[in-house]
Write a protein that binds this DNA or RNA. Structure first.
Lengths: 158, 158
DNA sequence: TATTGTTATACTCTATAACTATA
DNA sequence: TATAGTTATAGAGTATAACAATA
C-alpha cells in the first residue's frame, strides 16, 4: 500500500500535475496574483484576522521577508492592506481589502466547482474518502514536524 | 463536496505541507538531488528507458533547457549518464547510472515506508481510496489538458 | 526548413543579513 | 537585548532566444 500511495502522491505533487490543477485557475486570476502571492492571499483568508508578516509566514511556511515582498505586490494590486498594530507599534497588520476577499472567494469557488464537476461521476463515497485521506496526511505530517521542532526547541519557522 | 476537496487539496499543495511531506526525504538525499533535480531522476525512472531531454521534459512538465541544466548537476554527481543516440546524431540520451537507480530506489522505498507507517492505523480501505482518488484527479486533469492542447494544435510542451 | 542539445542573456525569486523602530 | 517589518545584497533558478549540428 505504501508503494501505491507513494506513486499516487508523487504524481499529484509533480510540478506538471500541480501546475495543471491550478493553472487554469491562476491564469484567470487578476494582476498581482500568481503561484507566489496566492499563498499569502489564501493564508490571510484562512487566518481570518489581520495578521503580522511573521504570523502569516508561519502559517504558509515562509519567512517574513518573503511575505513582506509579496504583500507589496498584492498591496499595489489593491488586494491587501497594511495597518499599524495598535497593540504593538513595531508590528504591521496585513489584511485583505474587500476586493482581495472577493478575488479569493471567486478563486476558491471556481476551484470548488471545477473539482465538483471532476468527481461528479466517481463511485459513491470516493471523493469524501479522498478529502478525508488528504486531511489526515497533512495533519500527520504537521504533527510529526511539530514534535521534531519542539524536541529541537524550535518554533514553526526557525 | 467540491468545497471540502478544494480545502483538502489546497492544504496538500500548499508549499508548507508539500515541503514537509518531502523534506525529510530530500534532506537525506545525496548531493545533486534536491527539489529541482528530483523530478528529472524520478521521470527517468518512470520512463524506464534512456530518453532525450525533450522527451523527459514533456514527461515532467518542463522544457529541454531546464532538463539539460539539471542533467548537468546529476551527471556531475554521478547519478546520470549521457550517451549519443545511435538513431539520431542530434539527440543525446539521458539515463540513470547504477548509482542513480540505486538512489532513486532508496528514496522511493523510504517514502513508501513512511507513508505505510502513516496510514497504518487508518480505517479499513481509506488509504486505498486516497490513492485511487489521487490517481483519478491526475488522470482527469491530464485528460482535460490534452484535450485543450490538441484543440489548440499544441503538443505537451508548447 | 525543422529539430536536436546546449548555452548566453536578462529577469525573478530567494535567503541572508543588515537596517530602523519599538518593546 | 530582543523583536517587529523592511530592504539591500548576492546567489540560484528560470524563460527566452540564440547557437551549431544534424535531419
Amino acid at each position: 500500500m505504501g508503494h501505491e500511495l507513494e506513486q499516487a502522491l508523487g504524481a499529484v505533487l509533480l510540478r506538471r500535475n500541480r501546475t495543471r490543477l491550478y493553472k487554469d485557475l491562476l491564469d484567470r486570476a487578476p494582476e498581482g496574483v500568481d503561484e507566489h502571492t496566492y499563498p499569502v492571499l489564501s493564508g490571510l483568508t484562512r487566518l481570518g484576522v489581520p495578521s503580522t508578516a511573521a504570523a502569516l509566514g508561519a502559517e504558509i511556511g515562509t519567512d517574513r521577508s518573503r511575505v513582506s515582498r509579496h504583500a507589496d505586490r498584492l498591496q499595489r494590486a489593491g488586494l491587501l492592506d497594511r495597518a499599524a498594530d495598535p497593540r504593538d507599534a513595531r508590528a504591521t497588520l496585513l489584511s485583505l481589502t474587500p476586493k482581495g476577499a472577493e478575488v479569493m472567494a471567486a478563486l476558491r469557488r471556481d476551484l470548488a466547482e471545477h473539482l465538483e464537476t471532476m468527481v461528479a461521476d466517481w463511485p459513491e463515497g470516493l471523493a469524501e474518502a479522498l478529502a478525508e485521506g488528504l486531511r489526515r496526511l497533512v495533519d500527520a505530517s504537521g504533527e510529526r514536524t511539530r514534535q521534531r521542532d519542539s524536541a529541537n526547541g524550535l518554533r514553526d519557522s526557525p
